[in-house]
Design a protein around this nucleic acid. Structure first.
Lengths: 196, 196
DNA sequence: CTTTTTTATTATCTTTTGTTAACGTTTTAA
DNA sequence: TTAAAACGTTAACAAAAGATAATAAAAAAG
């Protein structure tokens, strides 16, 4: 286990909540490496997925499948947690798939372990609360954008906003899917915007 | 303070997490009544709103205002918590308005108090975690519906699903707003559906 | 009980998106 | 290096939603 990368992970968690050596020692023995080739699934719809991951390197795409069509909800980049959080939470089969858009390196740990830490330590319980609050704020933002903005406005916000990584690194047809429109429609929107 | 209604509130909280007398005693002194006439605001956009509420009676509507237009995200009914949770969470002015659609009776308590309980007791910290997880799952569902379903499919799901209260009690133009379409468009969808 | 106000439907016209297909370019893999 | 696959743009037409206005029905207010 590369100590430098493990520290990177610990530091990322510390952004949510301070973790002393004792707290960290409860989780760290359960952390393992995972490599994924481009196109492989980290999480697969229909399976009970029990692991959360921390991306050391690479990009991932989080999507639902509805009537055979993929519907992208999120992209994940390095230095962020990824997983089918809510499936893990209630022990059900995952509703989502998370695939590697590039070759990826992850650190992973079982969700079960995290839950057992909630019992063992107030600090980890707090971590769980703040993580859930953080996820909820992200979902609230995404939800309100879908409700309030037109596809064109959503695209403009993506360009101008703080999600530049998506524009820079993600193929356009996935971005269209993320915006809830077809690639054809996104192409038209781009044309409309450049002619203004 | 009506003991029966206070108990109702306690019971509702217990659905999230067991609360013994001691835990409950930390919050109960801060609980107060609030009455709202139809049309009044429980939360107003732009104000720092520090109170969460528990609805004893009545219906409420949760909406954003964007370019002067209201965008409804949720309806609340009796026996549920309501408030500008995320504004309270980060201490900022509320981005949403919550108005009484009927005369309402609430129990309310300051969000600050809840946060201070997170420090005082592991049980309340757990309550906070599970509340945030619960909210996040609701947001996930709402978000994925907006991304995956057409307005017509969203309406059908509302009729067939477990959200019957909305159909039964909420005026149609608010439902249209909740679905992200105009009342005119909802009327057309209804016509399409009945002629099938 | 009568008068407003609110709510829901319908019609017309415009704008936007979806669908399908064609075409050229870029990337990937053999 | 060459063939195949993936990607982005454009065009033509269909389907759906927005905007506006007229009308009728239901609810609220006096």
């Amino acid at each position: 286990m590369d100590e430098k990368e493990l520290l990177k992970f610990r530091t990322a968690l510390t952004r949510f909540v301070p973790l002393n050596d004792e707290d960290w020692g409860l989780l760290s023995p359960f952390v393992t490496y995972r490599n994924l080739a481009k196109g492989e699934h980290w999480i697969t719809e229909g399976k009970k997925e029990q692991y959360l991951g921390f991306i050391l390197e690479g990009n991932m795409r989080h999507y639902y499948i509805r009537n055979g069509e993929e519907k992208t909800t999120y992209f994940y980049f390095e230095n962020h947690l990824t997983g089918s959080y809510f499936s893990a939470l209630n022990g059900a089969a995952s509703l989502v798939t998370i695939e590697a858009l590039t070759d990826c390196r992850l650190l992973s740990f079982p969700y079960d372990v995290l839950v057992s830490l909630y019992d063992e330590s107030h600090a980890w319980e707090r971590f769980g609360r703040i993580l859930a609050e953080y996820l909820a704020m992200g979902l609230e933002e995404r939800m309100s954008e879908l409700l309030m903005l037109s596809p064109e406005e959503r695209y403009v916000k993506l360009i101008e906003g703080n999600k530049k990584k998506i524009i820079e690194r993600i193929p356009q047809h996935y971005i269209a899917n993320y915006l809830g429109i077809t690639p054809v429609s996104l192409s038209r929107i781009r044309k409309r915007l450049t002619s203004k």
